[in-house]
Design a protein around this nucleic acid. Structure first.
Length: 499
RNA sequence: GCCCCCAUUGUCUAGUGGCCCAGGACGUGGCCCUCUCAAGGCCAAAACUCGGGUUCGAAUCCCGAUGGGGGCACCA
């Protein structure tokens, strides 16, 4: 049985390679790791898997830390925070992996392989021709160990391969899928140590998971095919296996195939991205992103979908994970983001909006931002919507299109007259508060025998220069009487220029 | 080509033999509210891939087909 909620503390690890931006797939894995660790009072370990020097990207590690922290994920052990099982960066463990590989060679469970990549490629071609699995021929298994040892010591270029059993089968257990049995004949003699002396994932991850006392390995299902090999390696060392949890893959929004680089580029044009760093810049909140990611492949019950981090820590369970591939649904992200924006308090929303106004070129003051918050809250899908919707609050002057000031069903001259009547009413007011401004304006609408839409429409364009805006009277209250009157006067002038 | 995994509305899912002529959410359409836009409320359309079993009874169990996905590197 799986041990999860209300069970003993887990030790889980999030083990990314610093090869690029963190995407939602790794974000979701890290999230589940974090939730499980917190729920059980266990530990989350961050481990950097940088055994491939060719793919290493400078700065990726720092960006990863920033991204995870933005999401609200913290770890208990890692290269940046230390811990009892250091080092937490695999490039610092090269000697350790070599010792483990040597041990297997000495025990006859692994062997040096001197084949060149050209020979390997020929082997693959042969396999295609004979409709056989693409596995290594095992040619170097036949070399006498003493002879192999001599060649290694002579400095001949080689790798270390695992001696996978050729007979029988192996059964492994995945928490979401149950037992999986594979014929050993279909398994490869996997490379453990590369010719540059660095370990492959297969060796390094198994050694580290063991020495770091990892209880649950949560990773993407692209690892499922190599799970039997990993089990063989672990058993060769005589270690205990962790619980294996292979998460479903994400499909592109159409549901046809995995996300590709090209898809990602197209996505940005629509204001979406699979990279978490981009999501932050596009105006998504960590709460929205977390809620959305958590529900991709996991569910709680029939009617609860709104979760914050502490809800998730309480409710998450491995049992409710879904093994089938899931199409990414960005409109659902929009939905969750809107929900979480609406759950924000005024002061919090104001603080989050500030940088977006700044980068749009405005100089917002905090007091105004806080007063605007209740007006914007229900109208935002992403935080980046705010400057376009509410930039007029911070503009000295506003520049409406004259034609837009003409109300539906009225001429320019009639609209100008309406604007003048509005000006008269508004300038007679003691202040611009909603309670003082709205009643007389409603009376004016009746007196003119027009609709509220006509009169307030003219005013809206005059004051905001926008056809769509936050509620008019509340907005005028924030802008203040002097500015409102100035803008209405300007609108009258504009209307008078029209034929 | 070989191996593995998966399969409920357009999408994410609930559902573990009778409570299901299948529930929720997003999206879509309509209505209400309304100073615009949202938000909110109400309503609607929309699914158990197919074929065989097992059983009194199957979305649920078994087999097969089909479809989808993943993997087959000295990448992780």
């Amino acid at each position: 049985m799986t041990q999860t909620s209300s069970n003993r503390p887990v030790r889980v690890r999030f083990a990314p390679s610093p090869t690029g931006h963190a995407h939602m797939g790794s974000g979701r894995t890290a999230l589940y790791d974090f939730l499980l660790a917190r729920q059980t009072g266990g530990q989350l370990i961050l481990r950097i898997e940088d055994t491939d020097r060719k793919r290493y990207v400078e700065g990726a590690e720092q960006e990863l830390y920033d991204t995870m922290h933005w999401l609200g994920i913290q770890w208990d052990e890692g290269p940046d925070v230390g811990g009892p099982y250091a080092p937490y960066r695999q490039s610092d463990c090269t000697a350790l992996y070599q010792e483990h590989a040597d041990q297997l060679v000495k025990e006859g469970k692994a062997y040096p392989c001197f084949c060149t990549s050209q020979e390997l490629e020929e082997g693959r071609q042969l396999a295609i021709k004979n409709k056989l699995p693409f596995v290594y021929s095992g040619k170097c298994r036949l070399i006498d160990p003493a002879e192999a040892q001599r060649r290694v010591q002579a400095g001949e270029r080689h790798v270390i391969r695992f001696k996978t059993p050729k007979e029988g089968s192996i059964t492994v257990r995945d928490v979401l899928r149950g037992e999986i049995t594979v014929e050993n004949a279909h398994l490869d003699d996997t490379v453990l140590l590369k010719s540059d002396g660095f370990a492959t994932y297969h060796l390094a991850a198994m050694v580290d998971d063991h020495r770091m006392r990892i209880t649950h390995v949560i990773r993407g299902s692209e690892w499922l095919p190599s799970l039997p090999i990993h089990a063989h390696i672990i058993r060769a060392f005589g270690w205990d296996e962790p619980e294996w949890v292979h998460l479903s893959v994400f499909l592109k929004p159409s549901g046809k195939g995995k996300m590709s680089k090209r898809e990602s580029a197209d996505l940005i044009k629509d204001g979406y991205s699979i990279f978490i760093k981009d999501l932050a810049e596009l105006g998504y909140t960590p709460e929205g992103v977390v809620n959305w990611m958590a529900l991709m492949g996991w569910s709680y019950d029939d009617h609860t979908e709104f979760f914050n981090m502490s809800d998730l820590i309480e409710k998450f369970s491995l049992e409710k994970l879904n093994p089938s591939p899931a199409a990414i649904n960005f409109t659902k992200l929009d939905h969750f983001n809107g929900l979480h924006i609406r759950a924000l308090m005024d002061i919090d929303l104001a603080a989050r909006l500030r940088p977006y106004f700044v980068s749009a070129g405005y100089t917002p003051d905090d007091a105004t931002l806080v007063r605007m918050a209740p007006l914007l809250r229900e109208r935002l899908t992403v935080l980046t919507d705010a400057p376009e919707l509410a930039g007029f609050f911070f503009k000295e002057d506003v520049h409406p299109e004259a034609a837009d000031l003409v109300a539906k069903g009225l001429t320019a001259a009639q609209s100008a007259e309406v604007a003048r009547r509005c000006l008269a009413v508004l300038s007679a007011l003691p202040d611009m508060r909603l309670e003082t401004a709205e009643p007389p304006m409603r009376e004016l609408v009746e007196e003119l025998a027009l609709t509220p839409a006509q009169v307030f429409g003219i005013l809206r364009i005059a004051v905001t220069a926008q056809k769509v805006s936050p509620p008019l009277f509340e907005s005028m209250e924030i802008i203040g009487q002097a500015t409102v009157l100035k803008r209405v006067q300007r609108a009258i002038q504009l209307l008078e220029t029209l034929p």
